[in-house]
Amino acid sequence: MNSKELSIALYTIVRREVRRFTRIWPQTLLPPAITMTLYFIIFGNLIGSRIGQMGGFSYMEFIVPGLIMMSVITNSYSNVVSSFYSAKFQRNVEEMLVSPMPNWIILTGYIIGGMARGIIVGFIVTLLSLFFSDLQLYSLTTIIVVTLLTSILFATGGFINAMLANSFDDVSIVPTFILTPLTYLGGVFYSISLLPEFWQGVSQLNPILYMVSTFRYGILGSSDINIYTSLAVIVFFTVSLFAIALRMLNAGKGIRT
């Protein structure tokens, strides 16, 4: 396929993915908006007013970047895992496998679809946060870079999960038992400087900490972790996961017998 044909094939997947999650917006875009509004009200307003300052900022200001990043992570991941697993389940993944599209186009198309949902939900949550907090933009470049990388990383993770899944239960295992705990322990609701030194070290093994901290740096100008270390870690995980997903797709893991 020439470059024009490749771009048409990529656009076809992305258009289909975006159309899918916008068509079912009450299941994809509305729930995170409601959940995050409740987080803002309960944790930010009601409990946050009793907590006082966190990392030099009001508790509401502190948790807003974390909650935005949590929305991006969850939605990038769940869009790809549910869409690609459904394509496997209904066997319409075969439509792509018989076509001359190279595997990297299939993977990139799904990742962009996941990024689109993650970023749209992130934007909706950002708009909602304006009702509760005055949002600063310390470094727009950092915000854009970390949001893009994070959404790529978790969309790729969702793709790997979908390839390995054999049932709809398998689709929910990773988000429930890995993603959610890592997100909660990734400094969304607290600064890791509050933890004993040992647990600070353990927290640094959690990749989500780097994303939340870097995003918080982009908004507030303050981070628990060195910004360049964070970006290097995120890039490393993103490239590694993409390479693993592409290798699995080339081998037909979970999709070819």
Binding site: M1, K4, E5, I8, T12, I13, R15, E95, M101
Partner: peptide, 14 residues
């Protein structure tokens, strides 16, 4: 329509 039209896109058809 979308099923057939999408397949055309997978083949890079304009």
């Amino acid at each position: 329509y979308n099923i057939v039209r999408t397949q055309a896109g997978f083949y890079g058809m304009a």
